[in-house]
Design a protein around this nucleic acid. Sequence first.
DNA 1: AAAGCATGCGGAG
DNA 2: TCCGCCTGCTTTA
Length: 347
Amino acid sequence: MPEGHTVHRLAAALRAGFGSQAVRTSSPQGRFSDAAELDGWVLADAEAVGKQLLIAFTPDASVAPGDPVTRYVRVHLGLYGSWTFAGEEGFAPAHAIGAPRVQGPEGDWRRLVPRPTTRLRIQGSQGLADLTGPTACEVLDGAGRRRVLDRLGPDPLRADADPERFVERVRASRTAIGVLLMNQDVIAGVGNIYRAEILFRARLDPAVPGRDLTAGMVRGIWEDLVPLMRYGARTGRIVTTQPEHRRLEARILERSRGTLQNGDGDPAAVPREESFYVYHRQTLPCRLCGTAIRSGDMAARTVFWCPRCQSVRSRRARWTLEHPAAAWAESGEHREPAAATSEESDG
DNA sequence: AAAGCATGCGGAG
DNA sequence: TCCGCCTGCTTTA
């Protein structure tokens, strides 16, 4: 259940675990028979564009990635897809990326057993990565990769992103900003959590038409997303709350279930219960004003918002003040939790 | 055991 | 706008 930050994190994990190595590729499940085509090829690169993952393979190490013979495996995790890594000590910076993983009784992550549902397995010299449940897993050539890239809006996590494309698309549209943020043509990588949270942080009603926003407001959304998603990509967790808006006692909350988040072994990590302003907090009191958070359908997904903080009147009053992201970015919250390298689940 | 649910999206209507 | 699909964990019966 990844948003863009998870896919970027995953690309980094694949580069770290297999980069420049000849790897074995297979499809234990059998539903990705094209895997055989790349068996023994070199995993030359892995990149994320929004929620799309592109893994570049070359026939051997003498071929530079980008050469016409390069082939790309496009993976889209959809709602359920996930990658699980296993291997030697220190092999990959992540054990599982995607859907949440469960911790075993010994406290360690469940041993990776070959699951019959594994669509794609990549086996390197020090470990392997198993992909299950993706909505897309296919081999593309360079033109196919290009088509994927051209279809997507700018990605806040990519250095080559042009935020003005996002600004222009939003301001030219009478579609609600809450819908636009979920449209990957408009901005790539934002999913349901970031949508809800970024709109709260902007104090924006999800229903406000894009064209009603000033360029500065839309740019502000982008500029808030960049550090937020970078934090997510680095730690594997989405945290959007500023420290002063969390309940202190939450830091010592007992974990109720075996499902762990990235950094759950780190006492300094923000617990999930305190990570969001509005996402999945319907009927709970707003962290700022106490009004009950509301939920509703928008763009075929559930959107969450505070009817008071995110009213149009509130927006006008607040936006002229310092943007909330500024203080947050300065606060040191972006430091990587100490334990974030050892356990994962998703972001 | 069955149903429900999830950070997604494409295609049919 | 709705349906279907991919999977696995959680909740309900």
